[in-house]
Design a protein around this nucleic acid. Sequence first.
DNA 1: TCCCAGGTCCTAC
DNA 2: GTAGGACCTGGG
Length: 302
Amino acid sequence: MDLDVSALKFNPSYTFDCGQAFRWRPVDSQKSIWVGAIGRSVISVTRDRVRIHSQEVHAQHHSDKVLDYFTPEDDLDSILERLPKDEFLSGAIREFPGLRILTQDPWECLVSFVCSINKNIPAIKLAIENLCDRFGDPISSDIGIYHTFPSPEALANAKQSDLLSCKVGFRWKYIKYIAMKIQSGELNLESLRNLSYEDARQAIVSKLSGRTFGVGPKVADCALLFSLHKTNAFPIDVWMSRCIREHYASMLRIEKTVLKKSLTPRTYALLSGTMRLHFGKYAGYAQQYLYMKTRTDSLYSR
DNA sequence: TCCCAGGTCCTAC
DNA sequence: GTAGGACCTGGG
């Protein structure tokens, strides 16, 4: 089944390679066709169309869910138009046209970003793929066997040794205990969709922050932006710290001394809050374009 | 062989 | 409140 997505004007390469999702793979050297799984559907994606390769009984239900993943309610042009422009952001938007923010499954997104803690991107992808292969359900399709992202039940019941065999390292206990919180119903991520950024964030942090759970401000903000579609979230990572230091500190009157210190909770709140205030309702879009630009500039200058 | 990675937690001030 | 260290493990 094919879905026409040309109206979304999106670029799969920028959208899948900007670090918001970790399971998409290009299947041609030009990176014009990407393959991955959304829920129980195996998907291939080009600029204009999304093709569903797995045979499932409730076809309409699946195609709706697949389309939602691409956040069709967001009109990219008008969002980018509304952002307060400066030279650096304008350059980023020119350089990466069609970079969209996805609406991923919040459970998958949260666990993926827990896997990202203190890992580089290839290692993150490897660990997540291992988890899917080991704990996900196989889905057959006309382009091969894929796996779903594991359910909370599967990871809540997983043995330490089996999680470690997926190369998640010390994060194994975070993953297991978050899964248990979700499985027990103590935290329902889907129910946070209708809450404000602040309330949804509070719900996640209050349940999942601390020794057992390992969900700090950055991981929480990524889940809020990339799955619960809180577009005013503004995650701060090492790249964004660099970006702020080089391009926004003086404009937004952020003291340079703040940026030299390690990222304490207070510093995080200050930086993220300042950027959210500056960029407004769609600050998260600005963040993604700035992230992409900062990262590629750094790669070319090495 | 060694350092580092889309962070977070703990400990000692 | 915060600096400084530890943390699994694969990649560069």
